[in-house]
Design a protein around this nucleic acid. Structure first.
Lengths: 143, 143
DNA sequence: ATCATATTTCAACTCAGTTGCAAGATTAGA
DNA sequence: TCTAATCTTGCAACTGAGTTGAAATATGAT
């Protein structure tokens, strides 16, 4: 992802200054192969620089409101975040009930999903979050 | 639901005593037409009797672990709970982004959903939570 | 009735996030 | 350049939701 998105430009398009913390948040999420918790992002940031958690929470909220990030709610108490650029469309998440690890699954078009669900006539679906809870192949082997 | 489930029997099947708090939790959820937050359940309980929140959290955790209840995570921070008896199978939830109201949608079989998603080979899906965010017909009319 | 176990309570705590306001950085205008 | 307005970050203190450990109470079995 990070190799495909121009983060300074992305920020400029949103009228935001390319500050070190903002860029670092995007880079960390760009390099991750899974959705990260705010705490994980904060930890990564602190390896490089001194950052306050409030700053990170505010950046994450702001980015989510602008559609730069997607916030996903898994079973854990903490929300997870991932990039929401065109190279990374919405997709289901798989969470293993043994090791708690999160995997991103292939995207399913919203229209097909909405047809499958047969949502109430007149309602409009803007987003469909799908969370699969189960057991990953690694944990299943160990049983 | 409540007219179809025998709560004392349900508890007995799970080796649990039919205590007033446990029964009241089930009755409250049985009468609700939507998933409730722990706080809402606690509030309802306190109309009838003096109950400690820890008791309620422990009962909700225990019931969820035993499969008597389902815990669902919507966009709000607090988890929501609903009865998980055979008369009330898992189903997608629709949450309106304008009025925040939650609607229960018709159930979709797990196997069909898992096939649709094409989850990774070797992984086993135990549960699929689907949350649709959008705009309900009532709010769309007002636009 | 006595004892073991199950259930509920209490106080204190954690974790994830939020608030208000101060301090520092950046940009635009005089 | 200096200054003011604005944007961004930091700090301390707080909230809401849930958890912990241990004590108190209730219930069931003998």
């Amino acid at each position: 992802m990070s190799d495909r998105c121009n983060f300074p430009q992305l920020l400029a398009l949103n009228g935001l200054r390319p500050t070190p913390v903002r860029l670092a948040v995007l880079e960390i999420l760009g390099l991750a192969d899974r959705a990260l918790r705010a705490g994980e992002i904060l930890e990564s940031l602190r390896i490089r620089r001194r950052v306050n958690k409030v700053t990170v929470y505010r950046i994450l909220d702001d980015f989510t409101a602008r559609g730069i990030l997607r916030r996903i709610n898994l079973d854990d108490r903490a929300a997870h975040y991932e990039l929401a650029c065109e190279h990374h469309p919405p997709h289901p998440h798989f969470q293993c009930l043994s090791c708690r690890e999160v995997q991103c699954l292939d995207p399913v078009p919203l229209s097909r999903m909405w047809a499958e669900i047969q949502g109430p006539l007149g309602n409009r679906a803007d987003r469909i979050d799908i969370r699969v809870a189960g057991h990953c192949h690694k944990c299943r082997e160990q049983e």
